[in-house]
């Protein structure tokens, strides 16, 4: 990627447009290799109770916090109150103001509860957090989240872990026209082409976890996603040709033999 093609979240500047999760890997070694292959600068982590049974190995023993910006999430929070509490704990544990805010509305779809999300977002912005909310692909909701002071919006491509790809590219485009904060497509990416399509739409970045961690060869898939995000971004910046029904010759018609 060209060196000057960067995007900002709050005051922080990033070059890689692929953000990755750290869940579901078979081993920590596999996770570290996949993070490296993905080229990501931002990686998400979750907040959970410490084990009291003396198995105390920490994720932070494995992830180089000088190399990666850690983005704590509030995954599995079903109320605004739980999401706010989890964010406060993450800030204390990680000494970061960043939070990927999730308030889940339903266990089967893991779709966000947008009403509760907005409540939590307003509280956390007031508390000084840099809030990245995971939301449905709803332009009106995206506008409300921006108005609430969120540093980005993270519309879903498809349900978390579904691998269905971008189900509604038109909504993603409208969201990009609606808000001026970065649009980070989050969740539902299944393979490299899904990632490229998201980036070709012009979204600022992409966040994925299962698409990489769940692949048969996660490290290779991380590399594929890295390439796809870069390819999609370059294609977006290059301006694709219009779609036409009929052919246009690419070789000159002058000078034909005959």
């Amino acid at each position: 990627m060209t060196g000057d093609d960067t995007f900002k979240i709050g005051d922080r500047v990033f070059r890689s447009r692929l953000m990755v999760g750290t869940g579901k890997y078979k081993t920590n070694e596999e996770m570290i290799a996949a993070l490296d292959a993905s080229g990501a600068e931002i990686v998400t982590v979750a907040v959970r109770r410490v084990n009291l049974d003396r198995t105390k190995e920490s994720l932070l023993d494995h992830i180089d916090t000088d190399k990666y910006t850690l983005l704590p999430n509030t995954a599995a929070c079903f109320t605004a109150d739980d999401a706010v509490r989890t964010s406060m704990l993450a800030r204390e544990a990680m000494d970061t103001d960043l939070v990927k805010l999730e308030v889940i509305g339903d266990e089967k779809t893991l779709f966000p509860d947008n009403e509760a999300l907005l409540v939590a977002a307003r509280i956390l912005v007031k508390e000084g957090f840099t809030v990245l909310p995971y939301t449905t692909d709803d332009p009106i909701m995206a506008r409300k989240l921006e108005d609430a002071g969120c540093a980005a919006v993270m519309p879903l491509a498809a349900p978390i872990g579904s691998g269905l790809g971008i189900r509604n590219p038109y909504n993603i485009r409208i969201i990009m026209e609606t808000v001026s904060v970065p649009v980070i497509v989050d969740a539902g990416v299944g393979t490299a082409s899904d990632a490229a399509i998201a980036m070709e739409l012009g979204c600022d970045a992409l966040l994925m976890n299962t698409g990489i961690a769940g692949a048969r060869d996660p490290v290779r898939m991380a590399r594929a996603m890295n390439c796809a995000v870069e390819a999609g971004r370059l294609a977006y910046l290059s301006g694709r040709i219009p779609r036409k029904l009929y052919a246009t010759a690419s070789s000159p018609l002058d000078g034909l033999i005959g």
């Binding site: 999760g21 750290t22 869940g23 579901k24 890997y25 996770m31 998400t44 982590v45 979750a46 907040v47 959970r48 109770r49 410490v50 920490s58 994720l59 932070l60 850690l70 704590p72 999430n73 995954a75 406060m88 704990l89 993450a90 204390e92 544990a93 990680m94 978390i160 969740a187 966040l207 994925m208 976890n209 299962t210």
Partner: peptide, 28 residues
């Protein structure tokens, strides 16, 4: 309520308190 690290030493617990101790784990 979060107890900041700087107050771990001075903060005393009492009967019936509810305490949570968390860490970061892998997640998306």
């Amino acid at each position: 309520e979060v107890v900041p690290k700087g107050r771990h030493e001075e903060t005393r617990l009492k009967e019936g308190d509810t305490v949570e101790v968390i860490r970061m784990v892998g997640g998306g």
